[in-house]
Each structure stands twice: as structure tokens, then as C-alpha cells.
Design a binder for these strands. Structure first.
Lengths: 191, 191
DNA sequence: CCTAAACTAGGTCAATCGTCCTATTTCTGT
DNA sequence: ACAGAAATAGGACGATTGACCTAGTTTAGG
């Protein structure tokens, strides 16, 4: 049986460092140092930098899917579920104001690096997008659901981007409220 | 008299490469090679990488200010001026779908690098923000003007972020229309 | 002109990067 | 208990980076 402890630790630390420092400017030594292992040990688990990036993306995909499943269990009404998504902006406010949205900034960096893993990173967006689409369908928005899902995603990306630039907590709260208002109006018009 | 040709060429090429590849992963050699000069020549004009970054930011500030001035001359009505801002998303669509928003991605990268020039990069946002605020004031939105300006900025950032991730032209067009609709409703409510 | 400053080319340097290797220790199944 | 696999440590490599230096060339002002 494989003991997954070290490998998992590497992935979790890399996940954090890729978010906080960016993928490109996070070195093997940074991750190994933060985990407290040698570079050789690191290399035993991940041969190339793309290997660790793939593992981090898979980790984020799994964690995101689990979070969305949890929201689906905790709240029955689509409105409450979507509201919970919008309010990640508040729940993760401090980190977002310091490092931006983990998904958006990764996609942006990979695009500039012309990195082959862009589709994999986009899959994290897809997880949110399709989950939101299902909620809007359940709320009776029919064929407009995907369009509305992208709109909510767009808002959260925009808020995260400006939250990073201005570090303005009041702005985040205000736009979260505005997004929920938009949601209520949209759902009311759909029924 | 100083011949500004080479220095200006360096700044323009660096501006493009910083946008397309990111600041950190653009090397001196990349810029020097693209301009067609030696690294020594490059070093003569810019001693450190932060020097060239400062010059690029100053260049972008000047170019942005000039663009906003042009919009103020071309269109009399605030509504038309703001609409022109929203439609940069279409005018620069191809580049945005490939590299994202130049301002947002720079701010995001500098945040991850914990770079001291974050306030300077944010000034480019401020240029748009205060220009938009002036337009909303002129449209009679009074004290809500800054809040509305940030909302428009937020939308453009969100659209740029998802445009980069999905490269979906129809999405961009749709959200531009939605933003203009929002603008018209907001201006109608203000008068 | 002619001299001093500005410009340009190309080389060097230490540091750091991703990658790879070998030797040793620890664990696991039989 | 023991053989083989997994895990770990630490070093070495070639390449690249930002930074810096020196030596020629061009340019501009007196």
C-alpha cells in the first residue's frame, strides 16, 4: 500500500503557493522547503513541473466538486444555492483581496505562458458554470440557464479582479448585494 | 538633444511583451531581441527590470489618458462616452480573448509577485474609474457616480476574465449589450 | 573640427531554475 | 526474517536569468 501522506502534502502546499505566488514564480525549492522535504524527495513524487501542476488542478477540481455537492445538500432552493456561490466572495474576501480569484488568475497566467494545461484549468470554471446552469434550470429559467450562469460567473470574476486592485471591502459587499438583487429579479421574471 | 528612438522602441516592445507573456516571464533578452538591439544597449537605457516596468506603466498611463481625452472630445453625451468604454471589449476582443485585460492581468501578476509597483499599476484603473465617475456625474447620477463607475469597471473585468477562459465571442457581445442595457436603465432612473 | 557625452555591442558573473542521478533509509508483503 | 519496492536526502548538471563591465562607435555643441 502506498502511503499518500507526503504526496498529498506536496499537492496541498503547491496548491497554496501557486495561488499566492503564481505558478511560474513558485520554484520546486519553495514547495519542498515549505513541506520540509528535500528536492530529491520532491522529484521522486513529481518528475516535472507540469506533473505537479496537473496534480494541483486535479486537487482543485475534486475540492470544488465536493464544495458544490455540499451546497446542493445544504440548500434545497436554487436561489439559496446560487446565493451561496455569490457569497464565496465574502467568505474568501481576505484571500481574494490579496491574491485574486484562484481560478481566474490561474487561467490568466497559463494563457500568458501559452501553457498546454489551459483546458484543464478551464474545467474548474466549467464545474461552477454547469453547476450554476443546473440551478437556473431547476429555478425554471430553461434555455437561458447557461447564459445566466455565465453572467454570475462574470460578476464574481469582475468583483475579484477589482477587489484585488483596490482592496475595498465595502465594494465587495455592495457588489455581492447587487448580484443577489439581480438574481432575485431574474428568478422572479422566470417563473 | 537626446535621440529618443531606441528608448521608446524598448518601451513599446516591452509594453506588448509584458501584456502577451506577463512581466515576470519576459526576459531582458526577449525585449532586446524583439527590438533588435544587444543586451548591453538595453542595459544602457534601463538599469533594472523595475526601471523598464516603471516606464511601461508610465507609457500605459499616458496612452490611456490620451484615449479617454479622445472619447471626451468625440462624444458629447455621457451615455455615448460610457458606451465607448464598454465597447473596448469588442474593439480589443481578439487580444482580450488571448491575453486578458492588460490592466487586470498586470495588477494580478504584481500582487502575486508582491511587487512594490502595485499602486502604480492601480493608477491605470484609477484613470478609468475617475473618468467614468465624471461621466456619471455629468449624467446627473450625483453621489452614486463612483459606485456606478466601479460597477462598470467590474463588469468589464469579469467579461475579460471569462473571455480569456472560454474564448467565446458570443458571450462577449451578449455581456456588452447587457452592460449597455444596464447603463441605459441606470441613466434613465437618475434623471 | 574635436572633444565630451550619448549610444551600442558583446562578454562576464553569480544566482537560480528545472531536471536528473545516486546512495541511504524506511516500509511492506510473504 | 528477508527481499524488493517505496521513500528520502543531497548533490550535480546545463540552461537561463538579471545585473554589470569594458571597449568601440556615433552624435552634438562649442
Amino acid at each position: 500500500m502506498v502511503r499518500p501522506k507526503t504526496r498529498d502534502e506536496i499537492v496541498q502546499v503547491a496548491d497554496r503557493l501557486f495561488y499566492e505566488q503564481g505558478f511560474d514564480s513558485t520554484a520546486f525549492a519553495d514547495i519542498a522547503g515549505a513541506v520540509g522535504i528535500s528536492r530529491g524527495n520532491f522529484y521522486h513524487h513529481f518528475k516535472t513541473k507540469d506533473d505537479i501542476l496537473a496534480a494541483v488542478i486535479a486537487f482543485r477540481l475534486a475540492r470544488t466538486a465536493a464544495m458544490l455537492d455540499g451546497w446542493e445538500r445544504n440548500a434545497e432552493a436554487p436561489r439559496e444555492r446560487i446565493r451561496q456561490f455569490i457569497e464565496i466572495l465574502i467568505a474568501n474576501e481576505a484571500k481574494i483581496m490579496q491574491f485574486g480569484c484562484p481560478v481566474g488568475t490561474l487561467c490568466s497566467e497559463l494563457a500568458k505562458l501559452d501553457h498546454p494545461f489551459q483546458p484543464q484549468a478551464r474545467e474548474i470554471f466549467d464545474l461552477f458554470r454547469h453547476w450554476l446552469t443546473r440551478q437556473f434550470v431547476a429555478a425554471g429559467c430553461g434555455e437561458a440557464a447557461d447564459r445566466l450562469a455565465l453572467h454570475i460567473l462574470m460578476r464574481s470574476q469582475g468583483v475579484a479582479s477589482l477587489a484585488l486592485a483596490y482592496r475595498d471591502e465595502a465594494f465587495v459587499r455592495r457588489e455581492v448585494e447587487a448580484a443577489i438583487d439581480w438574481l432575485d429579479q431574474t428568478l422572479a421574471a422566470a417563473v
